[in-house]
Computed example of a mutant assay.
Amino acid sequence: MKSSHKAVATTAISRLFVLELNAGNIHVMNTDGSDRRTIVTGCHLPDGIVVDVDAGHIYWSNMGIPNLNDGSIERADFDGKNRKAIVAQGKTHTPKQIILEKRAGKLYWCDREGMRVMRSNLDGSQIETLVESGKGDADSRDQRRWCVGLAIDPKFQKIYWSQKGPDNGGLGRIFRANVEIPAGQTAANRSDIEVFVDGLPEPIDLELDLNKRILYWTDRGDPPRGNTVNRTSIDNGSHEPEILVSHLMEGIGIALDVSNDRMFVTDFAGSIYTARLDGSEERNFLYAQGNLTGIAYAEIPQEK
């Protein structure tokens, strides 16, 4: 007896998910800014966003009000429905960039005033602190301790994160460590942390091209080294940054589409930029869109 079920043909459409901090909205659009729709409203100062294509979910971080320690992480479907808080307010202080490690079934994020790199299961359970750069109110006033952006290299099980430093202070740094805390050590005293790049204006979000082993990041400090998109190899000895894009108005979010040789970048003045991965052919295709923070690129399956 033949099955009556027919295989459904699908195709994929390239989409951008963008966070608007001031309005608390999440927008989805085509990669040229067309077909823009608002799918989530009422977010509590959203900052980082990541897409789980297979599960049909988006995850985002809400910074909350820093002195209230009321940050949270939420999840919804691609269309914004079935919205759910998975890390409740107060379980993380000021969550910033959030990333997905699908094979391990983990979400990773940086906690700015909490001065931590953290992770949990995809349902928000089993919250752990992997790095703790400070503790208490006095430490949290030192912006050199603020953890902001992060990326994971699954090949060598390394984690990279930025600590932004004071505004335009030239004290921003990107660190590297093993994903797992060495045996017998803690998030606060682990000995495997190394400074990967230092002397940066204000490094913010990170992205890794795992094929070419290159780390990209935004910097919102002053020109000439700030308000830029930068990159460097994660394997070669020298980690001198290469400036790819400049003249941003406080660059924040970055997303890579490696297979199509392009990046997408947001800034706090409300622009969305695209460029090739080497920084060429840069263009601003949306502007004055509010205070934009996180951005994610994904190829979303669609029924034909």
Rank of each mutant, 00 (worst) to 15 (best):
A76F: 03
R225V: 02
G105H: 02
T186D: 13
G90I: 04
D54Y: 11
F264K: 12
A76I: 01
N22R: 11
S4N: 13
D192P: 14
E250V: 02
G33Q: 06
L19R: 01
K155E: 15
L45H: 09
I214W: 12
Y108S: 03
R190K: 08
R141C: 02
E74P: 00
S280I: 00
F156P: 00
T232Y: 06
Y287T: 15
Y297S: 03
A23I: 00
G24Y: 00
G124F: 05
K155P: 00
H247D: 15
R15W: 12
R173C: 06
T94M: 07
G124A: 06
I152E: 04
T218V: 09
R141T: 12
I295Y: 07
G172F: 06
M63F: 03
G184P: 14
I152G: 07
R103V: 09
A187N: 12
D79V: 02
P166V: 02
T38N: 03
P201Y: 13
R231C: 15
Q89V: 03
E281L: 14
G24M: 04
E128T: 02
F196L: 14
F285C: 10
V40Y: 06
G221T: 06
I252R: 14
D142S: 05
G124Y: 05
D77S: 11
Y287F: 13
F264C: 12
L107R: 05
T41P: 00
I26C: 07
A7I: 15
G169W: 07
R173H: 04
G124Q: 02
E250Y: 07
L45D: 08
E20L: 00
S133G: 03
Q89A: 15
N62G: 10
G149C: 05
F17D: 01
D222V: 02
L122E: 04
S259E: 15
Q157C: 00
G172E: 04
S259G: 14
L200D: 09
Q163S: 14
A9I: 15
K155H: 11
S14V: 01
A187I: 09
P223Q: 07
A12Q: 13
V18S: 04
G56K: 05
L100S: 05
T129Q: 07
C110V: 08
C43A: 15
N22I: 08
D123C: 05
I65F: 13
G48S: 04
N67V: 06
K304L: 11
A151G: 10
A288W: 10
P241M: 10
I58D: 02
Y287D: 13
L292G: 08
D257R: 10
R37V: 12
L150K: 10
V117P: 01
N291I: 10
L208R: 09
E207M: 15
L200P: 08
Y108H: 04
Y59A: 09
G80S: 08
Q89T: 09
G226N: 09
N291Y: 05
Y297D: 05
S271Y: 11
R116G: 01
V18H: 10
A298K: 08
L208C: 11
R112I: 01
F17N: 04
S233R: 11
P224T: 14
P224H: 08
A255V: 08
E242H: 03
V265R: 10
G270L: 13
D267Q: 08
W109Y: 11
D52Q: 07
K158H: 15
I98Q: 07
T228D: 03
A76H: 03
C147P: 03
A7K: 15
E240I: 14
V229C: 07
V18W: 06
K6N: 09
A55I: 02
P223A: 15
T31P: 01
P154G: 11
